[in-house]
Design a protein around this nucleic acid. Structure first.
Lengths: 159, 159
DNA sequence: CCATAATCATTGGTGCGCCTAACGATCCGT
DNA sequence: ACGGATCGTTAGGCGCACCAATGATTATGG
């Protein structure tokens, strides 16, 4: 989607799903650009933020909390560990586990990413008034909540 | 994102960009599921719809109108041509071009996909009242318009 | 008129986010 | 003690968006 000059009033362009995915695309691009200017991507932020919020944890727990798939967790941690933003340590009490924790550099990086993220939000919402932003957020929250309930989070195969 | 049972109130989950991308994820999944039940995916619908709306055209023109990248156009047309939903013919007046057109089967498939698409919209917006759907659509349109203007569509490097 | 530029179709990549399948290692409940 | 669950890891796929390069063809303007 980077085209010039063609009549483009296609009929699907008013559909909620289209508006959502396209707007989300712009949002994602803004956020990703902000992150990449700090050499990071979405998963990096999510992992760092999760660590900051809940403290050191195993990869599996981090995956649950951040919504990052276990198999992607590995690469994400590798990337962050390479940059020494995060540390992998063996859990003496359970030798299956790694305990991942934030380094001071990681905390600093997180603060940087959060700044970038805040800027992205502003850029994203630029055309909306504060009240409109409020309403949009509320509507999206309702939608997300509804669909999260139906699918994703908290399907209990146990119990 | 298919996890059970973990405290998941992470602080980024109220951010507009998060709400947008996640909701869009659900929307995309709903739509994709609808399409895939007819053996299609997003690009297929977009191409078929573009053909139906603007008539036969070259791959390049279709790309411009549908927002599908030229390089993805090739595969998309291949897939649709295999199923005989679309036809590739040489343009006698310009031997660089292919003229792509919809077959009767293609039109029928498009109608099916449109039905599925409409169902997806309903499912997506289920928790919202008609007025709320209206407001959401309006807000998203404003956002999309704003960002489309700034980036994507209609950067004229010529002229 | 011809050289250069632009356009078209195609190939073969990249990146991100999300996801599945399989595996060995380890732990836990009964 | 054993079977089932959990943990980390590897390998891969899918969909969407995008970039770079190539060979053909056409358009242009000097």
């Amino acid at each position: 989607m980077e085209n010039p000059s063609d009549e483009t009033p296609a009929r699907w362009k008013g559909l909620p799903s289209w508006l959502l995915t396209q707007t989300a695309g712009h949002a994602g691009r803004l956020v990703a650009d902000g992150f990449s200017s700090a050499g990071a991507r979405g998963y990096h932020y999510r992992l760092l933020a999760t660590l900051a919020e809940f403290g050191p944890a195993s990869q599996a727990a981090l995956g649950r909390r951040s919504g990052i798939h276990l198999s992607d967790m590995v690469a994400t941690i590798n990337e962050l560990a390479e940059r020494e933003l995060v540390e992998r340590a063996l859990d003496p009490s359970d030798r299956r586990r790694n305990i991942i924790s934030l380094t001071p550099a990681g905390e600093r990086r997180l603060r940087l990413l959060e700044k970038r993220l805040a800027e992205s939000q502003d850029e994203l919402l630029a055309p909306l008034s504060p009240e409109e932003r409020e309403r949009l957020t509320e509507l999206l929250s309702r939608l997300l909540d509804h669909h999260d309930r139906r699918t994703g989070t908290s399907e209990e195969p146990w119990r």
